[in-house]
Nucleic acid binder design. Structure first.
Length: 136
DNA sequence: GCCAACGTTGGC
DNA sequence: GCCAACGTTGGC
């Protein structure tokens, strides 16, 4: 089991919409590093869902429901998509400012490489984020 | 709205 | 292959 974090602007695609729809195709990634991370996702991996720009907090945990396939929105087979399903909302969304104040999270990709939209998260980081988010 | 970070593009 | 110019992302 591996752990990941994806970013989404809530005005474009929010956690609530993912919950409403039950599953979504996570496409439109046009960055090679992020693409490589999509490629490495396996069914059942857990994915932190972060709202960028508007919100700036981790709001929930999703699960990879389908491993990578060619992005249906692109003619270029180099670009990939996965499917995500919502699993659980965090009881307390975890703000970026709080994560920045947490020494154990100082190596988080979200903080170190602000523009990357799909990134791996270590098990330790994942567990800490869950517990800070009020998750048992 | 501004700007830092970073990726991409294209001229040489 | 280098690097300047430019575009995009995202925090502030």
């Amino acid at each position: 089991m591996r752990y990941w974090l994806v970013k989404s602007e809530p005005d474009v695609y929010s956690w609530d919409r993912l919950v409403r729809e039950g599953e979504t195709v996570w496409d439109g990634v046009r960055n090679y590093q992020a693409r490589n991370n999509l490629r490495d996702m396996r069914k059942g991996d857990q994915v932190l869902f972060y709202h960028s720009n508007n919100g700036m907090e981790v709001v929930g945990i999703a699960v990879v429901s389908k491993e990578s396939f060619p992005d249906p929105g692109s003619d270029n087979p180099a670009w990939l998509a996965v499917c995500l399903k919502p699993w659980q909302a965090l009881k307390k969304p975890l703000a970026l400012t709080l994560m920045k104040q947490t020494p154990e999270l100082s190596q988080l990709g979200l903080i170190r490489q602000g523009r990357l939209s799909v990134m791996p998260v270590s098990p330790e980081e994942f567990n800490l984020i869950c517990s800070l988010g009020g998750h048992p």
